[in-house]
């Protein structure tokens, strides 16, 4: 039972980080119609910059700087990915974000080298609840994720600015006609979702080291979480991310011997099944 609870705690924390990535993808998709492949790169840059800074300053300052830096990079990527009105289709935007993610990973390789990076957790103590070890950052990442999901859901539905953001995805032309600057909207949406992904891995790097090429794995897991809600539901993206994180940890913990090597493969099979299941719900374009 203790083993199960311990796995569940770790699974829910990593699942929250996947959910943060997924929620970011939903935010971008709902406001710009772009599926952002570079979402994994945001997480990786956040984690790597944190590792680089944390030795020289207080952990909270380092984390804030890392998240702000990634938000800036996110805004820049958003402006590029949205492209031009007449010739950049959503699929073209996806390929552009794929290119940007590649570019980021090659720069990360140059700057940080080819090895997994991590840092010792900045919190001095962890709670021991009946034999289950709970690290403070587990709680923080779950809290941040739930809060972000709540605020974004309310923000998009209940505020004028949120409605303006969503309007852009419905019709770019119409949104521009009423004076909404689509490029600025993309920059904001990308910056916010970049900050969320970065925050997830700033917190998670001590238990899940990042390498320059971790972005593919993170992007796929985040996409799976987002796809659970058809790329439009923030709430379902949260559920999807948590379920995915839990499933992965339980497979690692309980699968016999060799099957453990299939952690990633199993998660991806779950993803394929999820997407297949979604396909019966989503209308054909």
């Amino acid at each position: 039972m203790t083993k199960f609870l311990q796995l569940a705690v770790v699974g829910i924390s990593t699942g929250s980080a996947f959910a943060l990535v997924g929620i970011g993808m939903v935010l971008i998709f709902r406001t710009t119609n772009i599926v952002n492949f570079a979402q994994g790169a945001f997480a990786v840059i956040g984690g790597l910059v944190m590792v680089g800074l944390v030795d020289d300053m207080h952990g909270i300052v380092a984390g804030t700087l890392a998240v702000l830096l990634v938000a800036l990079i996110g805004a820049l990527i958003g402006v590029i990915a949205v492209g031009f009105r007449t010739r950049t289709t959503p699929l073209a935007s996806l390929i552009i974000t794929l290119g940007l993610a590649l570019l980021a990973s090659s720069l990360n390789l140059l700057a940080f080298g080819d090895r997994p990076h991590t840092y010792p957790t900045i919190f001095e103590r962890a709670w021991n609840i009946g034999g289950v070890l709970v690290q403070p950052q587990f709680v923080i990442v779950v809290g941040v994720t739930v809060l972000a999901a709540l605020l974004l859901t309310l923000g998009l539905q209940r505020t004028i600015a949120g409605q303006a953001l969503v309007a852009c995805a419905d019709s770019r032309r119409a949104a521009e006609l009423v004076g909404i600057n689509v490029r600025a909207v993309a920059a904001i949406a990308f910056a916010v979702s970049a900050a969320l992904s970065a925050l997830g891995w700033v917190l998670l790097t001590p238990i899940d080291p990042v390498n320059y090429d971790s972005d593919v794995r993170i992007a796929i897991n985040g996409f799976a979480a987002a796809a659970f809600g058809g790329l439009v539901s923030i709430r379902l993206a949260l559920v999807g991310g948590l379920a995915l994180g839990l499933a992965e940890q339980l497979i690692v913990g309980y699968a016999p011997g060799q099957a453990r090597q299939y952690e990633l493969a199993a998660a991806l099979v779950i993803l394929l099944v999820l997407i297949g299941w979604r396909s019966r719900h989503e209308a054909v374009e």
Binding site: P90, L91, L94, V216, Y262, I275, R278, E282, V284, E285
Partner: peptide, 26 residues
């Protein structure tokens, strides 16, 4: 199942397929 959906589903699913193949090879 995937080709009834919009393009991004196939993109991510085929990428997942590639990762699965590599995991199985190892």
């Amino acid at each position: 199942a995937l080709l009834r959906l919009r393009g991004h589903y196939l993109a991510f699913a085929t990428l997942a397929l590639h990762l699965i193949l590599l995991a199985v090879l190892f």
